[in-house]
């Protein structure tokens, strides 16, 4: 295979004295949806936050498009084409939907920003209806759409999604996953962190199972879905 878009090699992350990530390695190749699944506290979000530079790894290395991300501040990492939709959406509640999208395009400086906003509105028509509304007044599902649209505004080469289904009604979860699949079909490369292992594995090219800071199993989405161990631990038998 060609050079991976993202290559994480043996990273260790500590929160003070707590060893949260214990030597994780994985890759994401162009056009893939790769998912990290695992229980609460397994280190999924920590891994994403480390890749985006919000947290720091003490050893190991992370490279993106063949270049090292070690010691690069988060805002520079975004400039290189890595976008993260954070856990809990974290839209700017006191800013309008439109302004949130503009903030997503903070690293972009050309006239195509307006086209990008229109593309996001085409993908999420609900946002267009509410473009002047403060983001804090949106429903949970709409906020998730906004958080995703906002991340797309930076024209990412890799989109990282942290628990996009969290706290959403089942019908909305399906909608969100439809959109993720749609993005994938149009060529996006996606790293997806999910507690909803069933949904995540059903759309993923490959998956990694995390347990207390370690990768315990890996395989294609199908393999993991049918694996006895994974079924027992994460899919309710």
């Amino acid at each position: 295979m060609s050079e991976p878009v993202l290559k994480v090699e043996n990273i260790n992350v500590y929160y003070g004295s707590i060893h949260a990530i214990k030597g994780i390695s994985f890759e994401v190749y162009e056009g893939e949806i790769v998912t990290l699944i695992g229980a609460n506290g397994a280190g999924k979000s920590t891994t994403l936050n480390t890749i985006s530079g919000l947290l720091h790894h003490t050893t190991g290395s992370i490279s993106f498009m063949g270049e090292s991300l070690d010691k690069i501040p988060p805002h520079k990492i975004v400039e290189r084409g890595l976008a993260q939709v954070p856990e809990g959406r974290r839209v700017f509640a006191q800013m309008t939907v439109h302004e949130n999208l503009e903030m997503g395009a903070y690293t972009q400086n050309d006239d195509a920003i307006h086209e990008d906003i229109e593309k996001v509105y085409a993908l999420f028509p609900r946002l267009k209806e509410r473009y002047r509304q403060l983001a804090g007044t949106l429903s949970g599902g709409e906020q998730q759409m906004l958080a995703m649209g906002r991340a797309l505004m930076s024209r990412p080469k890799l989109l990282m999604l942290d628990e996009p289904s969290m706290g959403l009604a089942p019908i909305l979860v399906e909608q969100i996953f439809d959109i993720i699949s749609e993005l994938h079909r149009t060529g996006a490369t996606i790293l997806l962190v999910e507690q909803n292992a069933q949904m995540a594995l059903s759309i993923a090219s490959r998956g990694y199972v995390l347990e207390t800071g370690r990768i315990v199993t890996t395989g294609t989405g199908k393999e993991l879905l049918s694996s006895e161990e994974v079924r027992k631990a994460y899919l309710g038998g």
Binding site: S52, G53, L54, P73, P74, H75, V78, E79, A83, Q84, P86, R90, V91, F92, A93, Q94, M95, M103, G104, Y106, T107, R150, A151, S154
Partner: peptide, 10 residues
């Protein structure tokens, strides 16, 4: 509003 999210915007 949110420094972490702001950083993720670049």
């Amino acid at each position: 509003e949110d420094k972490g999210a702001a950083q993720l915007m670049g």
